[in-house]
Design a protein around this nucleic acid. Structure first.
Lengths: 231, 231
DNA sequence: GGATGTGAAGTAGTTCACAGCC
DNA sequence: GGCTGTGAACTACTTCACATCC
């Protein structure tokens, strides 16, 4: 049972995955000093139809102005709220090889509200060094409390890492290791797999026609988890 | 005569994005010496229903055996064929910061058929060094012919890189820079955005109910990887 | 005029239920 | 018995078309 939060009525999965894209577009507009944007402009940059943009945004409440579009500042704020950027999250990263470093150093990875709580690795040569201003701790230490953990270790180590995270009461995991994780009910795992995008791209190359006509953008993600019932 | 059977009929977008997941699962089974697998087993690991797995696989032709499931070797081969792993691709990577290095060093990024044709960077300190056994060239040089280009440069440099790639007749781009690219019709761009998965995960955390019931696996997008450690 | 927001229609994808084969 | 493959039912998402409001 969830406490009835007023604002966002349930958004569809495709909508949720498009909101971050819209937000990035609007952010760019904002940085260039634009004060408003309309659904067609967003749609062209996002590679979706204008109707889809309007429907997605309508789900956040009535925030457009008929005749003139959406106010950039308001849009940024509302999308941020819908995505939960107004809350704060403690993020831990496990594994600081190239990928972990790339993520931690990326200006783009940590959205507003997300704070790096700790970095962990198991390589003695890495432990104790600083990455992006944070000292890397041994994964053998007791873990700090965290909202989300990001796993960037080799696949054969991923399950053990997940087990320890679950034991430390982490309920959301973003897994970059190409390894299926077994976790108890109540823990959300999202998988990120670089090679999948490459494979999809190649499928379309081979099969000529595809959803790549040439639009501007195409992002994807998606996929839902099985709604398992509790025994 | 034997029917050529090369043309799997058009697969749906969701199916295409699930095939690489199935393949990874089956590969694991294969490595453990299993000889067959059934749709329920795949479905539990992939976090989808068994019916969905059967429908997806049925699209590749009739390759299961009623009563006993799918033969692991055959399944690997057919999924690989459907995804075009039996062809060969020349891949170039532009930008060898942490992310570019992570990709190139990953055992998992380059699927069968994909060959690293060249690495490019614009940093004089990086040009001439070796990464994963390949010398890094200056992006000012003439580009080698390539099927796919992977962009791992900072967002402000991404458009210029894309322009040069397009001029060099590259028609498929995998863009890791958080930057919308303008490309001519006929060029496919796929975007990979780390922060999007994180944001989706957080949305579900905030909104209690979501597709994170907890099951085994799920959600996919992109990426993956691993082994790290620069020499 | 010009854009949003939304019922209604259309399309794509998933799940059910079972026939067919091992 | 068990498990695949698939028509039929269902659900979700997208697109159309237009009433609505600035």
């Amino acid at each position: 049972m969830v406490s009835p939060r007023l604002r966002p009525r349930k958004l569809s999965e495709p909508t949720i995955s498009r909101l971050p894209v819209y937000q990035r577009i609007v952010e760019g507009w904002q940085r260039r000093g634009e004060t408003s944007i309309d659904s067609r402009q967003i749609s062209e940059l996002a590679g979706v139809t204008a109707t889809t943009v309007r429907r997605d945004l309508a789900g956040l409440g009535s925030l457009g102005t008929r005749g003139s579009g959406y106010e950039v500042d308001l849009l940024m704020q509302r999308i941020g709220e819908a995505l939960g950027h107004d809350r704060s999250y403690q993020v831990v990263v496990v594994g600081l090889g190239n990928l972990g470093r790339a993520l931690v150093n990326s200006t783009n990875f940590l959205i507003r509200g997300a704070q790096l709580a700790a970095l962990y690795d198991s390589d003695p040569r890495v432990i104790g060094t600083e990455v992006a201003g944070h000292v890397v701790h041994s994964f053998d230490e007791e873990l700090v409390p965290a909202t989300v953990a990001v796993i960037c270790v080799p696949p054969e180590a991923a399950q053990a890492v997940a087990d320890k995270l679950v034991a430390a009461d982490v309920h959301a995991i973003l897994n970059f290791a190409p390894q299926v994780l077994a976790v108890p009910l109540g823990t959300a795992v999202h998988y990120v797999d670089f090679s999948i995008e490459l494979q999809i791209l190649m499928y379309h190359l081979n099969n000529g026609t595809g959803p790549l006509g040439g639009g501007l953008l195409h992002s994807l993600g998606i996929a839902a988890t099985t709604p398992l019932r509790t025994p």
